[in-house]
Simulated scan of single mutants.
Amino acid sequence: MDPWKTAPFELGHGDDACLLLHGFTGSPWDIRPLGEALAARGLHVKAPRLPGHGTTPEALLEVSHRHWQESAQEALYSLRGYRNVFVAGLSMGALLGLHLAARQPELVRGLVLIAPAARFKGPTMALLKRLRHTGLLERVKPWVHKTGTDLSDPVALAEAPILSAFPSARLNDLWTLQAQAVENAPLVRCPTLVVVAEQDHVVDPEGGRWLASQLTQSPDVRVLSLHEGYHIIPRDKGGPRMAAEVGDFLEPLREWGIEARAVH
């Protein structure tokens, strides 16, 4: 993978900040267009590269979901000096963001879950999940090879940095994060926007809608359904609309923060 493309980034200046979290086997490249759009609206944007990602397949041998959660937590803590802090995550990054909002409610003012990996699509993943505790997958197929990523835009697809393979053992970490999301959803107390792509080939958009229904303590839950583009929404055909909707969703939350502080 091209280290320049997959590098972490920080963009923009302002009193409010947004933490962006990429997905499994992805990199900050996947979410950069959203970061650029939010920076243009006056937010400071931070997108870390999660441990084991954006370099070589072998790097994922040395990490687990705990490393990803710790990295996300550290990035959130680094933004504590901002007036309002928001979190937006793509796919697995959405599950990590959900964890942050549930466990650190005093830090997360608003949450955006983009194509959340609540449920994977297709019978193969369902079968593998049922076999997860047998160790069979790791013995029979220790590596899962990739030839592409889920983008409908041919230009974005041609430019995408693609990790050629990943250890099948890391699927267990994804399933662990899914289980944690079920526990975390009712603990989220900030406004939340859930974005799903109806043509997603990786995660089931119904899983995103189901996850939205579990946010029972959130004061405002919205679902944005996109009919253009596939799983990597920020880089795909529906990306510009999504970026505009995310900015519009966060805008009144930023204003509320100003008013609340003026009262005190």
Rank of each mutant, 00 (worst) to 15 (best):
175 W>E: 09
164 S>D: 11
136 L>F: 15
158 A>G: 12
160 A>Q: 02
165 A>F: 01
165 A>L: 01
166 F>Y: 14
168 S>N: 07
156 A>Q: 06
177 L>H: 02
150 D>G: 04
170 R>I: 08
153 D>H: 06
139 R>L: 09
154 P>L: 03
164 S>F: 05
150 D>Q: 03
179 A>Q: 12
159 E>H: 13
160 A>E: 02
156 A>D: 01
149 T>L: 15
167 P>K: 00
142 P>R: 08
147 T>G: 14
146 K>P: 15
158 A>V: 06
177 L>E: 00
138 E>F: 14
149 T>E: 13
153 D>E: 08
152 S>N: 09
144 V>P: 10
167 P>G: 05
152 S>K: 09
144 V>I: 11
147 T>N: 12
149 T>V: 14
152 S>F: 14
151 L>V: 06
142 P>S: 06
161 P>W: 01
139 R>V: 12
162 I>D: 00
144 V>T: 11
179 A>Y: 15
165 A>V: 06
171 L>R: 07
179 A>T: 13
155 V>C: 10
174 L>Y: 02
163 L>W: 00
146 K>A: 10
173 D>E: 10
143 W>N: 04
144 V>R: 10
172 N>Y: 13
141 K>C: 10
174 L>M: 11
175 W>N: 05
142 P>C: 05
157 L>V: 05
146 K>G: 14
141 K>S: 13
151 L>R: 04
140 V>K: 06
161 P>R: 00
147 T>F: 15
137 L>V: 12
137 L>K: 05
160 A>S: 13
158 A>C: 11
148 G>C: 04
164 S>I: 13
151 L>T: 00
172 N>T: 13
168 S>C: 01
162 I>M: 00
160 A>W: 02
167 P>L: 04
175 W>M: 11
170 R>Y: 01
170 R>T: 15
154 P>R: 01
146 K>I: 08
168 S>T: 08
165 A>H: 04
148 G>I: 03
162 I>Q: 03
136 L>V: 11
143 W>A: 07
158 A>F: 04
140 V>I: 12
145 H>I: 11
148 G>A: 08
179 A>F: 07
137 L>F: 09
160 A>N: 01
149 T>Q: 10
157 L>W: 09
154 P>D: 05
171 L>I: 03
145 H>R: 13
179 A>M: 15
175 W>L: 12
158 A>Y: 03
152 S>A: 13
154 P>E: 00
145 H>E: 10
152 S>T: 14
178 Q>A: 07
151 L>D: 00
158 A>Q: 04
168 S>H: 08
140 V>P: 09
159 E>D: 10
166 F>S: 02
171 L>Y: 07
171 L>F: 11
145 H>Q: 07
154 P>A: 08
159 E>T: 12
